[in-house]
Simulated scan of single mutants.
Amino acid sequence: MPNMPRPIVDIHTHVYPPSYLDMLRARKTVPYVHDPPSGAASRLIILSSDDNPSIPLDQRGRPVDSSYSDIAVKLAFMRWHGITTSVVSLANPWLDFLAPDEAETWAKRINDDLEVLCARVNREADPEGTRALHEKETLFAFGALPLSAPSAGIIAKEIARLKTLPHMRGVIMGTSGLGKGLDDPGLEPIWAALADTETLVFLHPHYGLPDAAFGGPDATDRYGHVLPLALGFPLETTIAVTRMLLAGVFDRFPRLKILLAHSGGTLPFLAGRIESCIAHERKFIANGGDTRGPQRSVWDVLKTNIFLDAVVYGEAGLKAAVHAAGGADRLLFGTDHPFFPPLDGKEDGEWLSVTTNYKAINSSFGDEDVAAVLGGNAVRILDLK
């Protein structure tokens, strides 16, 4: 990318380690990987709506090629788009579906795989350790948590272990938490462990909204993934964070740091409405009710506890995100690679998911803020050395 400030850091970029895909290949229920006997591309079925018996098995889900697991493809993508550093993370559905007795083992394995991968790539890029961050392609990672483990102590133990791995810069987590949402009291020791260790949480949607919200299975047949991805994912994030706010999570854990995918869904746009509804809620003690209600405002939480990625694909959404966050210093560039590849199927084709985000950032800010959003903020917030 000519005339782009460096470093450029991609904090929203996914990888499925080969061990993870092999584990999915051994499964027959969502999530799973199906290898067509014809030798065609493998199919990744991670959304329950994709596992429709009326759809031929060889056509369910999405095709997955080497870009999902081969780090050489990731590095080539980075070079093509001028990206100097990627903070990779396991993509949805992470490890949420595992049986309790498997969760801890798989979390350690996946996180160790990511750590080894980052260490190898960075060593090969700079054997002598003398090159600056913007002079090489480097990798860091967000770890995965064993959220289905039989005790919160096991999860907290892995959070602490991740802090000892040199290339880990936080964790990625879905909106289900332990299975009951992010306002679940059972998450209290997890929030405490994350806050105490100053571990950043990259919160990413997966579960969407019920099919009925979009017209049922018939709508999926007509419109594919447009409704669940364009609307379901952002609203899922918005609802999850609002439930945390209402439950007082941010009151009890003021040091909790969360990075929201897709610029926070619709949270920046709806923050004022959420705040107004909270102020007028009669169930809260402030208005004569018997429920405590949140003690901090949505705006305070957005400016103190929350960072937003810039994966919003348009200037209007990006400006709403900046306003809600209180400035460009809390926005971080991302691509969502390897999802949304070039429509022409060519390796060197245009990634609209990347170019639209670059365009929105460059048209929304002056040079100093552009440099901060594209890389400077990530270097500072994630301590990328």
Rank of each mutant, 00 (worst) to 15 (best):
M4A: 04
M4N: 03
D10W: 09
D10A: 06
D10H: 09
I11F: 09
I11D: 01
H14L: 04
Y16M: 12
D22M: 04
R25Q: 06
A26L: 07
K28S: 10
T29K: 11
V33L: 14
P37G: 04
P37W: 06
A41W: 00
I46S: 07
S48H: 15
D51G: 06
D51N: 14
P53M: 03
L57M: 13
S66P: 00
S67E: 09
S69W: 12
D70T: 04
I71C: 10
I71N: 04
M78D: 10
R79T: 09
W80I: 00
G82P: 05
V88P: 00
S89T: 07
L95F: 05
D96Y: 08
P100L: 04
P100V: 04
D101I: 09
E104C: 09
W106I: 00
K108E: 10
I110D: 04
N111L: 09
V116Y: 05
L117K: 04
E124A: 14
T130A: 12
R131Q: 10
A132P: 02
H134V: 08
H134E: 15
H134P: 08
E135H: 06
S148R: 12
I155S: 11
K157I: 03
K157H: 15
R161W: 09
L162K: 11
L165D: 01
L165K: 12
P166C: 15
H167R: 10
H167E: 11
V171T: 10
G174Y: 08
K180E: 14
G181C: 10
P189K: 13
A193P: 06
D196Y: 08
D196F: 12
T197E: 13
L200T: 15
L200C: 14
F202W: 05
Y207E: 12
Y207H: 13
Y207K: 12
G216K: 14
D218K: 08
A219W: 07
R222K: 13
Y223G: 01
Y223A: 00
V226H: 11
P228G: 10
L231E: 05
L231T: 05
G232D: 09
F233Q: 15
P234S: 02
E236T: 12
T238S: 07
I239D: 05
R243W: 02
M244Q: 07
M244E: 01
I258S: 01
L259G: 02
A261Q: 05
G264S: 10
G264R: 11
L267D: 05
A271W: 02
R273Y: 06
R273D: 02
S276P: 02
I278M: 03
I278C: 01
A279Y: 03
G288S: 06
R292I: 08
R296P: 01
V298N: 03
W299K: 05
D300P: 05
T304Y: 01
D309F: 13
D309Q: 11
Y313C: 01
E315T: 13
K319A: 09
D329R: 14
T335K: 08
D336A: 11
P338H: 13
P338E: 06
F340P: 05
P341K: 11
L343Q: 15
D348W: 11
V354A: 06
N357R: 01
Y358N: 03
Y358C: 06
Y358D: 06
A372Q: 14
V373D: 01
L374A: 08
L374S: 05
G375M: 04
A378P: 01
I381C: 03
